[in-house]
C-alpha cells in the first residue's frame, strides 16, 4: 500500500508539482480554476495529515476538529487581535491546532481502531456544539475573514496562492523527512505488530502521540489557509462530522501511495464538486457519494494507483 512513498525523488517531483500548479494557477488558468487549485492545495494538507495517521492504521473521523480549530484560530486572531498578516495567520493556525492535538493526544494515543475514530468524532462534535450555539463565537453564521496581508501590504489572490504553494512545499519536505526518519518507519511497524515494537524498546504511545500532533498541525494549517482563501469560516462547513467524513473520503480517493496523492486528490475533489454543483444542483451529493463508492470498488488504491498503472516502464511487484 505504501510502496514508493519513501523514494528519494518523491520530494523533487513534489516540489515540481506544486510549482507547476501554482504557475498554472496564477498565469495560465482562469481565476475560478485557480481557486479550485488553491482550495485543493489547502485541503490537501489536512488530507496529508490524515494519511500520515492512516499509516498506523488510525483513522480519525473527527479531523475536522483541527481543520476547524485552525480556521477559527485565524478568525479569532483577526477579531480580537486584528491579525491579518499571512505569516502570523498560518503560525497561529498551526500552533493552535498543534497545541490542542498535543493535549488530546495524551488521551487519544491509547486508542485504536473504531474507538480512536469515535473518540475523535466526539471531540470534534464537542467543538461543533460550542461553536454552533455560542453567539460570541459567531454561532452558525461563523465569521468573515478579511483579505490577508504581508508586512502590512495587501497580499492579493495571487500572493495568497504563492504563499499556499510555499506552505505546501515546506510541509511536503517536512512530511517526507519525517516519514523517512526512524520515527516515521516505526509507525508502519506499529501497524504490523505493536507488541513487537514495544519489545524493541520503543514507546508505541509516544510515537503515536508525535504522529498525532504532526497530523493535527497539518490539519490546522489546512484550516488556516482555507479560511484565508475562502474569506469565511463557519461550523457547518469546517467542523461538522460530515466535513471529517469528506476529509477521509478524499484520503481514500487520493490513495495512500505517495505524499503527493493528497494534493492531487483534493484538487480533483474540488473539481468534481464544482461541476456536480453546477450541472446537477439537486444531485451533487449523490454524485459525490457515487464517486466514493466507485472508488472503493473499482479503484481501491485511489487515484494515485491510476498513475502507477499507466507507467509502462515500471511494474511494481506485489
Amino acid at each position: 500500500m505504501f510502496k514508493g512513498i519513501l523514494k528519494e525523488q518523491t520530494i523533487q517531483v513534489g516540489i515540481g508539482f506544486v510549482f507547476i500548479v501554482v504557475l498554472l494557477g496564477t498565469f495560465i488558468l482562469p481565476e475560478w480554476m485557480s481557486n479550485n487549485f488553491m482550495y485543493g492545495l489547502s485541503r490537501g494538507l489536512a488530507v496529508l495529515g490524515l494519511m500520515i495517521l492512516w499509516r498506523t492504521n488510525l483513522v480519525s473521523f473527527g479531523h475536522a476538529l483541527y481543520y476547524g480549530f485552525g480556521a477559527y484560530a485565524v478568525a479569532m486572531a483577526q477579531k480580537y487581535l486584528g491579525v491579518t498578516d499571512v505569516f502570523l495567520r498560518i503560525i497561529i493556525a498551526i500552533a493552535a491546532a498543534g497545541l490542542l492535538g498535543f493535549v488530546l493526544g495524551f488521551i487519544l494515543r491509547r486508542y485504536r481502531e473504531i474507538f480512536f475514530a469515535m473518540l475523535s468524532l466526539a471531540f470534534s462534535m464537542v467543538l461543533y456544539g460550542l461553536l454552533a450555539k455560542a453567539e460570541f463565537l459567531g454561532s452558525t453564521d461563523g465569521m468573515s475573514i478579511s483579505p490577508s496581508t504581508m508586512f502590512g501590504f495587501e497580499l492579493g489572490r495571487f500572493g495568497l496562492f504563492y504563499f499556499i504553494g510555499f506552505v505546501v512545499i515546506l510541509s511536503l519536505i517536512f512530511a517526507h523527512a519525517y516519514l523517512r526518519s526512524s520515527l516515521g518507519h516505526l509507525t508502519t511497524a506499529i501497524m504490523d505488530n505493536e507488541i513487537r515494537v514495544e519489545y524493541l524498546g520503543y514507546s508505541v504511545e509516544k510515537a503515536i502521540h508525535i504522529k498525532y500532533v504532526i497530523s493535527a498541525c497539518l490539519a490546522g494549517g489546512a484550516g488556516g489557509l482555507m479560511a484565508a482563501a475562502l474569506g469565511q469560516v463557519d461550523p457547518d462547513s469546517m467542523v461538522l462530522w460530515s466535513v471529517s467524513g469528506e476529509l477521509v473520503f478524499v484520503t481514500i480517493m487520493a490513495g495512500l501511495g505517495n505524499i503527493l496523492a493528497p494534493f492531487v486528490g483534493a484538487i480533483f475533489f474540488e473539481f468534481i464538486r464544482t461541476y456536480a454543483y453546477e450541472f446537477a444542483p439537486q444531485a451533487w451529493q449523490m454524485i459525490i457519494g457515487g464517486t466514493l463508492l466507485a472508488i472503493i470498488f473499482f479503484l481501491p488504491g485511489g487515484l494515485w494507483s491510476l498513475f502507477q498503472k499507466i507507467n509502462p516502464f515500471k511494474k511494481e511487484k506485489k
Partner: peptide
C-alpha cells in the same frame, strides 16, 4: 474504516 466510508457515500445518495 472503508466500510464506514461506503455507508457515508450511501447516506449521501439516499439523501439526494
Amino acid at each position: 474504516h472503508l466500510i464506514v466510508l461506503a455507508t457515508f457515500g450511501l447516506f449521501w445518495i439516499l439523501e439526494d
